[in-house]
């Protein structure tokens, strides 16, 4: 594993919000084709870490590399253009817009020819077609009407739309922040399956979660975050859930990975 170049890597990230140090020299590595879970207590800095890795937050110090090359994300748009797709904890979907609109939000397709270039006309039919295709590939076709407003969907379906969007456009990395936190058992299961589907399509996934059983079920490796930095990296085979909780809470001391 470690001879491979990480798809996404961070070293010594620091981010302070006034007196709070959200990131305190955090390291991070994501390798090709894996599901990497990031776990940690509330306030450990998980969200801040993935925000830094997706351009939503500019760290005060530290470096980020993609496929070995140094990058500095200016904003989420920039990270996206480099192939990093993120589903934020606060779902970045627009409730009143339709499913297809949401999938293509910020990168709408225009009609070919003069209609698109001069009149800036959207190619709604094509966006609908691609959205339908994407959702059916991920087995989300119970979402019937691709124009249906997202707010009329259940929590799991919304999460599905957000994941589908990231899977459709992410070429390098898909990051999911607490995707199952607000979901019921059945809906969580579906999202976990989605995560596997995305990985099986060759996209590495970063999964931030609180939920130990979920993490141990889908993750290939587990990054444990504590007090703004990485405390350890374990695998579901090498450690038990109790070990993970121990490291997370500081009850178990480990050498920093």
């Amino acid at each position: 594993m470690s001879q491979q170049t990480p798809v996404l890597q961070a070293k010594g990230l620091i981010k302070r919000f006034g007196r709070v140090t959200a990131l305190d020299g955090a390291d991070f590595e994501l390798y090709p084709g894996e599901v990497l879970a990031v776990i940690g207590d509330n306030g450990a800095g998980k969200s801040s870490l993935i925000k830094a890795l997706s351009g939503a937050l500019v760290p005060d110090a530290g470096e980020i590399r993609m496929n070995g090359e140094l990058v500095q994300f200016k904003n989420p748009m920039h990270a996206r253009s480099l192939g990093i797709e993120t589903v934020y904890q606060t779902l970045a979907v627009s409730p009143a817009l339709g499913i297809a609109d949401n999938l293509f939000l910020g990168r709408e397709l225009r009609k070919p020819g003069i209609l698109g270039s001069v009149f800036r006309m959207l190619d709604k039919a094509e966006m609908r077609r691609q959205a339908t295709e994407q959702l059916s590939q991920l087995g989300l076709l119970t979402i019937q009407n691709i124009n249906q407003a997202v707010e009329t969907l259940s929590g799991g379906q919304r999460q599905g739309v957000a994941v589908a969007r990231s899977a459709a456009f992410g070429s390098q990395v898909v990051i999911l922040d607490e995707p199952t936190a607000a979901l019921g058992v059945k809906e969580s299961r579906r999202v976990l399956n989605l995560i596997r589907d995305v990985r099986d399509r060759g996209l590495p996934v970063v999964l931030i979660s609180h939920n130990m059983p979920h993490v141990f079920e889908v993750a290939d490796r587990i990054h444990i975050h504590r007090l703004g930095k990485r405390a350890a990296v374990i695998t579901p085979d090498s450690h038990s859930m109790a070990d993970a909780v121990g490291i997370m809470t500081g009850a178990v001391e480990v050498d920093a990975a």
């Binding site: 939503a56 904003n75 989420p76 748009m77 996206r80 993120t86 934020y88 606060t90 779902l91 970045a92 979907v93 627009s94 409730p95 009143a96 817009l97 609109d101 949401n102 939000l105 910020g106 990168r107 709408e108 225009r110 009149f119 800036r120 006309m121 959207l122 709604k124």
Partner: peptide, 24 residues
């Protein structure tokens, strides 16, 4: 029928979400 229009709706609907979706 234009991306600008979608962005106006999205911005009014949920500004933070629109921002995270990459809309300026």
């Amino acid at each position: 029928w234009t991306a600008w229009g979608r962005h106006v709706y999205a911005t009014g609907d949920d500004k933070d979400a629109a921002e995270l979706a990459g809309i300026r």
